[in-house]
Write a protein that binds this DNA or RNA. Structure first.
Length: 370
DNA sequence: TCTGGGGTCCTAGGACCC
DNA sequence: TCTGGGGTCCTAGGACCC
């Protein structure tokens, strides 16, 4: 898991393993289809990530929930072709544990209802702490050093001690393990607080021109995201760095913070500020491997506090950006871009093994041969 | 040679106020 | 010689998630 291609290339060649580049357009569309299917099974649901959702089944307690779980799984499989696992329990943390077992156990076969206290106890006993939702590697090590190795042991730990050692976040996890919910269902996600666009380059960059172009194109993309969210940014951070996996060459990480006097989502302003920042960050003696822009202090775009004299410019900016976005979303090739982004984009990573975008592009439809 | 991208929350400490 | 008590806001860094 998470191994870079070059490290397993020999195995790939030897056993003729199929290789696929990531295909985010396809994933997003298949995710949408799965979520839509899931939403048929409950009046309230939280789309937690591209491949996970929490369904509120509190109105179904008199039903056979075990059967319902299996029905959810088989329906998603039939309608989308995607195999999913279903875990049902009294809190999010316990549902995640139920799901993990559902996925692995041949007896559960992809769906598990975990409410019977006896089974619950056994499930917690066989769940290592590092597999619990909310326990990362650092916390896991800390717990293990104190002889807490299973979810059951964590559940039975002392509240005061947990609060002191692991803070309010740790205590919430413990309470969730006991079956008292600390995390509610978030049906409509709150507006974003930050927007990031960053990329590793296809090759190392040494020229300031390439570094400018790459980073400028990330900021243009960040502007698009911002406008799609209906937000404007007060602060932008631009950073550049060398390859963190190599210590042979000159290591370098640096960033610049820019505060806009008026919050903006105008790509022209973002791109200009990015170029200025890159010029400050650039160094001749290092080879850059990654850069990125982060937009913070987001405010609703329609509530920007205008300064006294720039009203007309704002209106013009808004219409220009709107036009830009309309053209670029209607035409798949994103034909309108900034000169600062460059044309060749030699720093782009190649996706050599990418499949078609079967479900979202007419010119990439699956072809079935007779 | 070659190692992803995008987020959130919490806490401690500093600056500042009365 | 001896220098209080209580509070808010902001930021950076740590930890976590997918």
């Amino acid at each position: 898991m998470g191994v870079p291609f070059f490290k397993v290339k020999a195995i790939v060649d030897k056993y003729k393993v199929s290789v696929f580049s990531s295909n985010y357009t396809l994933y997003a569309d298949m995710s949408r289809r799965v979520m839509q299917t899931l939403s048929e099974f409950t009046p309230s649901m939280e789309v937690y990530s591209i491949d996970e959702a929490f369904l509120d089944l509190s109105g179904f307690v008199n039903q056979d929930l075990d059967r319902y779980g299996r029905q959810i799984r088989s329906t998603v499989l039939r309608w989308t072709g995607i195999p999913v696992s279903v875990g049902i329990a009294s809190t999010k943390t316990l549902a995640k544990i139920a799901n993990r077992i559902a996925k692995r156990s041949s007896k559960a076969q992809g769906a598990l209802l975990l409410t019977d206290p006896r089974y619950l106890d056994h499930a917690l006993k066989t769940t290592p702490v590092e597999k619990i939702w909310g326990v990362g590697s650092r916390t896991a090590r800390k717990l293990q050093n104190r002889q807490i190795n299973t979810a059951q042991q964590l559940r039975d730990a002392d509240d005061k001690w947990i609060l002191k050692k692991f803070g309010i976040v740790g205590l919430r996890t413990v309470h969730e393990l006991r079956g008292s919910p600390c995390y509610r269902l978030e049906e409509s996600p709150p507006p974003k607080k930050s927007v990031t666009v960053s990329r590793t380059f296809g090759h190392r960059i040494e020229s300031i021109q390439e570094l400018r172009e790459a980073t400028a194109s990330y900021s243009a993309r960040a502007g698009e995201k911002l406008r799609a969210e209906g937000r404007a940014a007060s602060v932008m951070t631009v950073y550049v760095m060398t390859n963190i996996f190599k210590d042979t060459e000159n290591r370098y990480f640096n960033s610049v913070n820019i505060r806009f006097s008026t919050p903006t989502n105008d790509s022209r302003e973002l791109v200009q500020a990015t170029i200025n920042a890159v010029d400050k960050l650039y160094r001749k003696d290092v080879r850059f491997k990654k850069s990125g822009v982060i937009l913070d202090g987001l405010v609703p775009a329609n509530q920007i506090q205008l300064s006294l004299f720039d009203k007309r410019e704002r209106k013009e900016s808004e219409r220009l950006m709107q036009t830009l976005d309309i053209i670029n979303t209607r035409h798949p090739l994103n034909p309108v871009m900034f000169g600062a982004e460059g044309l060749d984009k030699p720093w782009k990573v190649q996706f050599n093994y990418k499949t078609q975008r079967y479900t979202t592009r007419f010119d990439e439809l699956l072809v079935v041969k007779p």
